[in-house]
Simulated assay, not measured.
Amino acid sequence: MREWLINRLQIPQRAVLNRKIPKKAFFTQADLSTTEKEMFTSQIEGIFLLSVMNQQSMNIPIYQDDEFNYAEVVWIYVELRTDKNINRIIGAVHKSIPNPVVLIVGSSEGQILLSTSHKRLNKNDKTKVVVEQPTITDWFNPREENTAYSNLLNSLVVSYLSFENLHSIYEDIHQWIICEELIQLIGTIPTSSDNRKEAVNIFSNVQKHRKEVEQLQQEQKGQLDFGAKMDLHMKIKRQEQQINTQLQQIKELC
């Protein structure tokens, strides 16, 4: 699977390493809990460094400002024995590596998922980073052709990404992975980076409306007054109409 993915994403050979990383290396790099160490030992078959993209291997400028210090983008492949506690494993991998990680997780059934997580400089200690909440796709079969997920992999082909600097190339990957949730909602993703930007902006509004619906539904459950219950019902319907309208706008961009 690793070699197939390297070829599928057309990672330049000069940036490919594809070598195994000892699990113990993660124990010393991050403050993993006893439970996290146990998960690494029992649930992960192997961890591999697929690629290191930096100024030397890719001729991409580093990026540094008050928030970020991106000198490398690291591609990691994790081969699982079981997908139990997958979110905790993903979080532990991201926090174990100070550089931004494009994480590919493979299951024993031949499926994969993708994850990214931006890392900001700690304002109190610039030698440390703050790991953002990881973005994680659903499981999918990467070898299936003519699907929304094959289109997602097409968008992640390295030569199509932004080469302005190492932050821009990682942000490009990150935004495409955010778009994966659109596959679950409307069955497709945008066809270009420009359409993607607009679609992601609209999708952020969809997420706000969905949270509002959840809050109204919770409030409605605890409401005993019929009039108040109907008022909440109408508010939910208006939010749902907004969601449907915005999903239609996203579909027109795909």
Results as ranks from 00 to 15, higher is better:
Leu5Asn: 04
Gln13Ser: 11
Asn18Gln: 05
Lys20Leu: 06
Lys24Val: 05
Phe26Asp: 01
Phe27Lys: 04
Thr28Arg: 10
Gln29Asp: 08
Glu38Gly: 09
Ile44Met: 14
Glu45Pro: 06
Glu45Phe: 08
Gly46Ala: 11
Gly46Arg: 07
Phe48Glu: 07
Val52Phe: 04
Val52Asp: 06
Met58Ile: 00
Ile60Arg: 04
Tyr63His: 15
Glu67Cys: 06
Ile76Cys: 01
Tyr77His: 07
Arg88Lys: 11
Arg88Gln: 11
Ala92Arg: 01
Val93Ala: 04
Val101Asn: 02
Gly106Gln: 03
Gly106Arg: 03
Ser108Ile: 15
Leu113Arg: 07
Leu114Gln: 02
Ser115Ala: 08
Thr116Cys: 08
Thr116Tyr: 05
Lys119Gly: 00
Lys126Glu: 00
Thr127Gly: 00
Lys128Ile: 00
Lys128Cys: 00
Val130Cys: 00
Glu132Leu: 05
Thr135Met: 06
Thr137Lys: 04
Asp138Gly: 07
Phe140Asp: 02
Asn141Tyr: 12
Arg143Pro: 10
Tyr149Pro: 00
Ser150Cys: 06
Leu152Thr: 03
Leu153Glu: 01
Asn154Gly: 09
Ser159Asn: 08
His167Pro: 07
Ser168His: 15
Ile169Arg: 03
Asp172Thr: 04
Gln175Ala: 09
Cys179Thr: 11
Cys179Gln: 14
Leu182Thr: 01
Ile183Val: 13
Ile183Ala: 08
Gln184Ile: 09
Thr191Pro: 06
Thr191Met: 12
Arg196Ile: 14
Lys197Gln: 15
Ile202Lys: 06
His209Phe: 13
Arg210Ser: 07
Glu212His: 12
Val213Ile: 09
Val213Thr: 07
Glu214Val: 12
Glu214Leu: 14
Gln217Gly: 12
Gln218Lys: 15
Glu219Asn: 15
Met230Ser: 13
Met234Arg: 15
Lys235Gly: 05
Lys235Leu: 13
Ile236Arg: 00
Leu253Trp: 05
Cys254Ala: 12
